[in-house]
Computed example of a mutant assay.
Amino acid sequence: MKKTIQGEHTLYAVKGFLQEEKNIQIGKLGEFTFARGYYVYVGSAKRNIQARINRHIQVEKKKRWHLDYLRPYLHIEEVQTFLGEEGECQLFARLQEKNGGIIPAKGFGSSDCHCLSHLFYSLNESQL
């Protein structure tokens, strides 16, 4: 797994690969079908971004965030951090557009903003 983490960064993107199609219950959000392919999740951490990323990478943990429900099925390939200047929602939109990403689950990771999701899917390998 490739990890690029900068101490002053407050945004991050986690890229993982799902080996086979799965129906997964994402907490109270509902059950969704996740196709085989690449998934990118964008989040933020105002402080201690390293700890947040380390938690997301762990498989065995108490389920707290939407990503925690998807994580056991993903092979994490890359984690990249970013300066917080553009904002979490703008970073997600930029990466989604750059990769032609599709929203697989409405509301995933975006319960505290007005975005449709903070998770996108791509059949082809995504670039962070």
Rank of each mutant, 00 (worst) to 15 (best):
R64W: 12
F108G: 03
A51T: 09
K28Y: 05
K3N: 07
H118N: 04
E20R: 09
M1T: 05
A93E: 14
Q80V: 11
G107W: 00
L116F: 06
G43M: 10
T10A: 01
Q19S: 14
L123R: 07
E77W: 08
I5W: 03
N48V: 01
Q25P: 03
L67A: 04
F82D: 00
D68P: 06
Q58L: 09
L70P: 07
S111E: 01
K106T: 15
Y121Q: 02
K98H: 15
V40S: 07
F32N: 02
L18Y: 04
Q58E: 08
N48S: 14
K3R: 12
F120K: 01
Q96P: 06
N23P: 03
G100E: 14
H118M: 05
C115I: 06
S126F: 08
F32Y: 09
G27L: 10
H56K: 11
H9D: 06
H75W: 03
Q6A: 00
I49R: 00
R52Q: 02
P72E: 14
L83V: 08
A93C: 11
L83A: 11
A93D: 11
C89T: 01
Y41R: 04
G101M: 09
S111L: 09
R94W: 15
Y69D: 13
V59G: 11
Y39F: 09
L70D: 01
V40P: 02
E77F: 03
F34L: 07
K15I: 15
E60Q: 12
G109D: 10
E20W: 03
L11H: 00
Y12R: 02
N99T: 04
L18P: 06
G87S: 14
V79Q: 11
K22P: 10
L18C: 00
M1Q: 09
G7F: 04
A51W: 02
L18H: 05
S110T: 15
K63L: 15
H114S: 14
T33I: 15
N124R: 07
Q19H: 08
S126D: 01
Q25G: 03
K46T: 12
N99M: 13
V59D: 07
L116W: 01
K28L: 12
E60F: 04
A13V: 09
H9R: 00
S126V: 14
S117I: 02
L67W: 08
C115T: 10
E31M: 14
V14F: 05
F17R: 00
E20N: 10
L91H: 01
